[in-house]
Amino acid sequence: MTNMLLQIKDLRTHFFTESGVVRAVDGVSFDIAPGKTLGVVGESGCGKSVTGYSILQLINPPGRIVGGQILFEREKNGRKEVVDLLKYGARSEDIRQIRGNEIAMIFQEPMTSLDPLFTVGDQLAEAILVHQKVSKRSALDRATELLDKVRLPQARELLNKYPHQLSGGMRQRVMIAMALSGQPKLLIADEPTTALDVTTEGQILDLMQSLQEEFGMAMLFITHDLGVIAEMAEEVVVMYLGRVVEKTDVRTLFDAPKHPYTRALLESIPKVGHKHDGPLQTIEGMVPSPFNIPQGCPFHPRCARFMPGICDEAVPAETPLERSHTVRCYLYSEQAEGDRYGNPA
């Protein structure tokens, strides 16, 4: 295994609801190298957030991780070891050691991630005290340092403020400060700038990039915004209905996308600075109900390159193209995936 920080192999997270089983994540695999950024892009319901939550085992019933491996390289007593996070129980001491410390996470809406009844200082100090054996006083000093790091002015005064006294951008900076408190090796960012205004979004993206360099952490960047992906990610996975349909480096994704879904997605966004009067390319129909995922390639009912008798039979296998580029589509390989849900191999 060549030096990967995180390897997800065949992750399956399903939700067992009264109306049926939702296979929110269904056989997802990807790797993240230390210090690098992997972008996960897809429309709502594609399973990108559930993938992020699964890494930290933050899946609540009726959801359950039903299969796969999440291999994470840890340093313990000066030695590197690779552990499968899914071997740890969701409530185990081991996973709690990792959560918020070695792997941190930030979310879309910073207001709901902060407790309105506690000051910023209390909440930051709490995050530090959970993982480090220090006094409350030095935790608050550390909190001040962290607020400086995320470029919040007057950090001392800010410690005594409540979340409602801060703007959306400031709250997201506080969340980032909190995430950095344990000097994580991996930061999972779930749509961290979606709720922010565009100038604030720009500031936060710049901040995250410079902090990533400074702390040498890897990022899993989940977003639906292809512009943000282009700026932040080095490698990208495109998800559709719980599966990775294409995986490649960011240049190739935008220059030479292979999967018809990726192509259509890229063409359907209005490109700023390139105004034209014609209609936008669209993807026919809509994302199917998660209870009723089409047989075969799940994209086939909307696909412009649909091949009857092939695409609607079995799920296409993940096909390696050049370098790290893989795609799940019968245009590139006839190979189907034999899986255990009744689809023929």
């Binding site: 565009v198 512009g227 700026e231 240049r251």
Partner: peptide
């Protein structure tokens, strides 16, 4: 505003007006 938009083009230089 124009400089802040994340543009779907990874080859572009990121020269945001701070």
């Amino acid at each position: 505003l124009l400089s802040s938009i994340p543009k779907p083009d990874p080859t572009r230089k990121k020269r945001r007006i701070a």
